[in-house]
Write a protein that binds this DNA or RNA. Structure first.
Lengths: 140, 140
DNA sequence: GTGTGTGCAAAGGCTTTGCAATTGC
DNA sequence: GCAATTGCAAAGCCTTTGCACACAC
């Protein structure tokens, strides 16, 4: 997995050890179809490596997040979800009724971001956007 | 307070008792300058009514929220904040560095909402939007 | 060796729940 | 009187922290 190798070397470059635990967390994040929670990562990694500990998962995610290698998004369900920066990002529409999560192309928010930057001198973090509402099914 | 009277009659209309506890929670939400947390409401109400209990606050807020009388917003700090629907709403820019919360006029999101509705048939809940990023001070 | 990283267990913060007692209609 | 509502205490959920051990360099 090329991405993981990148992350691995990225870690050593920055003076962090690319430990097996860290690499397994990285792989889980990169292997996930979509945003993945700490617990999901934990369960996935633990299947291969039973000693894995949930605090290590959290600590690794915190580190990766600080380094800008993964993003954290709160989908409104009381837990944080993680996503690999390397995979390109997009935004999310979260249905408040059925919980469906719909991915949205990134560019759709650009005009809004530009306007907010201009009017409020506020730089919107475009890696961290979730909008809530009602999906097509639930609107019927 | 006119709003509170409205809420009070609203509650009885719908078959819910306008108990003192509920009315005090309503007043606290309406009296707040901005979004207020459950704990802030609790402390405020308890100052006048020492028996008040935090679970009653949560239960009341849940009810008010179901009835569409207050909105819940997660500002990304791990707790939910509440806002009276009667006071008109706006959106928020939350600085990820200093935590500042900047109010944004509601209309700024209208074009985006329209586009999402058209392209994804998803109805964005415009009462529930917070965008994260860096405020002007922290960008320097 | 020395500092970095891990595992474990415990605590932390916010929110929810079970249940008996109380209240309002 | 009866259902709705409250207070209390306990639990629940996700996440963080303290500390001793283990590991890498």
């Amino acid at each position: 997995m090329k991405q993981s190798r990148d992350m691995s070397s990225r870690l050593s470059e920055l003076g962090y050890r690319p430990t097996p635990q860290r690499l397994m967390v990285v792989q889980a994040v990169e292997g996930a179809d979509s945003h993945i929670s700490a617990e999901e990562i934990y369960l996935q990694v633990r299947a291969r490596y039973p000693h894995m500990n949930i605090s290590t998962v959290y600590r690794t995610l915190e580190l990766l997040s600080e380094l800008g290698l993964v993003t954290e998004t709160d989908m409104g369900d009381g837990r944080v979800r993680y996503h690999s920066m390397g995979k390109g990002h997009h935004h999310h529409l979260v249905c408040q009724k059925c919980g469906a999560i719909i991915d949205v192309e990134e560019s759709i928010l650009n005009p809004l971001g530009a306007e907010i930057q201009q009017k409020y001198n506020f730089k919107v973090n475009m890696k961290h956007v979730a909008l809530f509402g009602l999906c097509s099914k639930c609107r019927e």
